[in-house]
Design a protein around this nucleic acid. Structure first.
Length: 229
DNA sequence: AAGGGACACAACCGCACAGGG
DNA sequence: CCCCTGTGCGGTTGTGTCCCT
């Protein structure tokens, strides 16, 4: 179908941002707040694409960003989250205050990937590189117990022998992470929306893991499952 | 000191999705 | 229900810096 470009590329700057551009963007957002990125460049007097402004603000200019090296704890958390969520950088970033998805993605590709390789682990699967690709399929099931919703992973292996290694891998894939999954009864009242996040607001667990279209998706149900970031 | 390869990270691009008209 | 727009995401590219020869 084709879409109109987000801006007139012929009249926009590209490449590195100058200090002046940064200042203009910061000043405008301080004065008017975030939002309507399409019209922001014109309003702020910037010859930039709206998307470019948004990216610049989110990744580098936001005041709550934590700059500097990643700590060892952050490293390990990223690895754990990646083993659980895959390349869902935005979800991973949501668990690391002050870090952006772009920053984590870059850090993964440059540092952690190599770190895992040096440990003999496949950065994509988090399995030992030497290990043959096994025929394990993983599905997310749900079982309810005493009012709580528990998530479990079901591993099916072609081989009957469930080795200790497989159990270990299962534990690795279900690390003891506090994902702060908030489970509640079907809500009766309008939920309090702290921040007008359009798409992440009331996602079910499947969708919050990026498993949209999953048969487990509960977004259209009244269960009221949501994840808290 | 110069050249070039490797690395790190900022920025861009294309696509998907939600929501409004 | 369809189309369009705005936004967000993940992958990729571009560019500056570092390091080795």
């Amino acid at each position: 179908m084709g879409r109109s470009p987000c801006c007139e590329k012929a009249h926009t700057n590209k490449g590195a941002w100058t200090k002046e551009e940064d200042q203009r963007l910061i000043a405008h957002i301080r004065a008017h707040g975030e939002g309507c990125w399409r019209s922001l460049p014109k309003a702020a007097g910037l010859l930039r694409c709206g998307k470019s402004c948004r990216l610049r603000w989110i990744n580098y200019l936001r005041p709550d960003l934590k700059r500097g090296n990643f700590t060892e704890e952050e490293d390990e958390l990223i690895i754990k989250l990646h083993s659980l969520l895959g390349n869902k950088w935005s979800l991973i970033a949501a668990r690391l205050p002050g870090r952006t998805d772009n920053e984590i993605k870059n850090y993964w590709n440059t540092h952690i990937r190599r770190k895992l390789l040096s440990r003999g682990l496949d950065p994509t699967t988090h399995r030992p590189i030497s290990e043959r690709a096994s025929n394990i399929t993983i599905s997310y099931g749900r079982r309810e117990e005493k009012g709580a919703v528990l998530w479990h992973m079901e591993e099916r292996s072609s081989s009957e022998e469930s080795s200790a290694w497989q159990r270990q891998q299962q534990q690795l894939k279900c690390p003891d992470l506090n994902l702060e999954l908030c489970i509640g009864p079907p809500f009766q009242q309008e939920p309090v929306v702290v921040e007008p996040v359009r798409r992440k607001g009331n996602l079910c667990f499947s969708c919050s893991l990026g498993l949209h279209k999953s048969k487990e998706c509960k977004c259209n149900h009244v269960l009221g499952l949501s994840t808290e970031y």
